[in-house]
Amino acid sequence: MIRAGVVGASGLAGGDLIRLITQHPEMELAFLGGSSNIGRRPAELHANLRLDLGLTVQPVTEEAVADVDVLFLATPAPVSAQLSELLADKVAAIVDLSGAYRIRTPELHDRWYPKVKRTTDLADRYVYGVPELVKDQLPDARLISIPGCYATALTVSLAPLTLGLGLHLKTVVVDGKSGSSGGGLQLRTADLHPFRSGAIAPYAPTGHRHAAEVADFLERGKQGSIDSLTMSAYGVSHVRGLLTSAYVFTDEPVTQRDLQRAYTRFYKEHRFVRVRRHNETLIPVPDPQAVLGSNFCDVTALHDEEGGRIVVLAALDNLVKGAAGQAVQAANIRFGLPEETGLTMQPVMPA
């Protein structure tokens, strides 16, 4: 049995980690860490978790995690950086859900995470944890950085074009829409119900750090290339789920048949990426409501012949495939388990 610890147990991603780990047949929740809710039980922090685990939130120390095999950090990036420095060689594996180590390039990291100080040595040890793309690196990884929710959707969207077909993408323009849970539990006026309900709020219209981490990762993966990757992000009124629309411009010839075959071939061995035709169901897909509560990412690639572009759509549950579920998926591979272990739940719809 793999002994798991969750730091940041009171947050939304922390709550989903607790939910998934307690249902996992090969994991045992052995430690809950935090700072502001010391002594509280999971059931007090999360209304959906009426569990008596015999655990309460405890301060994070080397001694407290001494018997933990995998430590999940569902903490803000500055906290994750501090804890990584303290615990990197004290547990068999750390899986960090924050942005502290997602961007490898130091200058790019400093631009998007100016308050997160880290050492280059530790940053170089972290594996960027998209299981579908780095599965061979995960079994030996002691440090795994889980991509951001938008970044997961975007990486899944673009990898078949750059890593698969080896295309040179001149321009990629991304439109991203996410529910309120993407912002966590920090209180902001714009997230209050009178303002968020029914809203389409352009909170990052001229750039987003998740686009930067995707460009950084794909650049290191090479084969194809991307000259420009930009993103606009919007908050919408639902709670869970996100949709990214990537508008891709390239001078290289490509057809709808090429795209369908490339995406199907690229993800044929990866059960959590569902390559879909947008008109295959009664409602158009990808649609976030068709993946809620699951670890699936639905992706569709379309050739817009009139517009001279490729349109790639991707939908996922930002708290599962975009956070806690992907973290458990990566940990499964790290410890030699089938990656779907504990993650076979189907989406809930309507939600």
Rank of each mutant, 00 (worst) to 15 (best):
M1A: 11
R3V: 11
V6H: 00
V7Y: 02
A9C: 07
G11K: 02
D16A: 07
L20A: 03
L20R: 02
M27N: 05
L29K: 01
F31Q: 06
G34V: 03
G34C: 10
L45N: 09
H46K: 12
R50S: 14
V60T: 14
V60L: 05
E62K: 15
E62C: 06
E63T: 14
L71C: 09
F72Q: 03
L83H: 12
L87S: 12
A88K: 09
I94N: 02
V95D: 00
S98Y: 14
P106R: 11
P106E: 09
L108R: 13
D110F: 05
R111H: 13
R111L: 14
Y113Q: 15
K115Y: 15
V116M: 10
T119G: 10
T120A: 13
T120R: 05
D121S: 05
L122P: 08
R125D: 13
V127N: 01
V130Q: 12
V130S: 04
V134Q: 02
P139E: 14
L143F: 07
S145T: 12
P147E: 08
C149Y: 12
C149V: 00
C149F: 11
Y150M: 04
L158S: 12
L161C: 08
T162G: 02
T162H: 00
L163M: 15
G164D: 03
G164R: 01
L165H: 01
T171F: 09
G176N: 00
G184S: 12
Q186P: 01
H193C: 12
H193N: 15
I200M: 09
A201R: 09
Y203T: 07
P205S: 06
T206P: 00
A212N: 00
A212E: 04
E213T: 04
D216C: 12
L218M: 10
S225R: 14
I226S: 10
D227I: 03
L229S: 05
Y234D: 12
L243S: 01
T244F: 05
V248D: 08
E252I: 05
P253H: 13
T255E: 13
D258F: 13
Q260C: 07
Y263M: 10
T264N: 11
R265F: 13
Y267T: 05
E269V: 14
F272S: 02
V275W: 08
V275D: 01
R276Y: 08
R276K: 13
R277K: 11
H278M: 11
L282H: 10
L282S: 11
V285T: 15
P286N: 11
D287R: 06
P288A: 01
Q289P: 00
S294R: 09
F296R: 09
T300Y: 12
H303Q: 15
G308V: 09
G308C: 10
R309A: 14
R309N: 03
A315C: 11
A315P: 05
L316A: 00
L316E: 04
A323N: 05
A324R: 07
A327I: 03
V328R: 00
N332Y: 10
N332T: 06
R334D: 07
E340K: 10
G342Q: 06
M349A: 04
M349Y: 13
